[in-house]
């Protein structure tokens, strides 16, 4: 079962909402990161099962970050969570190895559903 999750989003507001949804659904929030640099730093110490990743961050190109995360932590499942809705971008993230895409704004049900779908 996927127990631990890391949330990467530059918005504290979004992080807290995601944390609320995750905790309610029985997950453990292993770490929160507000930037790409923080995400990479936390990755090694936490090895989360799942990473919820916003790909618009002030300090990094989201797609590059996605690649770095996947190569640094191949066992973590990355779910991209973004308001970019262009099909091309969504395809690209999935091609790079993301397991799913959550469109912002999201509902708690959608987040729970996507996380459940990742269970083996």
């Amino acid at each position: 079962m996927n127990r631990t999750v890391m949330i990467v989003d530059d918005s504290l507001f979004i992080r807290k909402i995601l944390r609320g949804i995750l905790v309610e659904n029985g997950y453990i929030v292993a770490a929160e990161a507000g930037s790409g640099i923080e995400a990479m730093r936390n990755l090694h110490s936490n090895h989360p099962d799942v990473i919820l990743l916003d790909i618009i961050l002030p300090d990094s190109n989201g797609l590059d970050l996605l690649e770095s995360i996947i190569s640094a932590c191949p066992n973590s499942k990355v779910v991209v969570c973004s308001s970019i809705g262009q099909p091309l971008v969504i395809r690209k993230t999935l091609d790079l190895g993301a397991k799913a895409f959550i469109q912002k704004p999201f509902t708690p049900e959608k987040v729970a559903e996507v996380l459940k779908s990742l269970e083996d």
Partner: peptide, 13 residues
């Protein structure tokens, strides 16, 4: 653009 966009997303949530 990013600020307007983020605000929109938060308000929608």
């Amino acid at each position: 653009f990013r600020h307007a966009h983020s605000l929109k997303g938060m308000a929608a949530t």
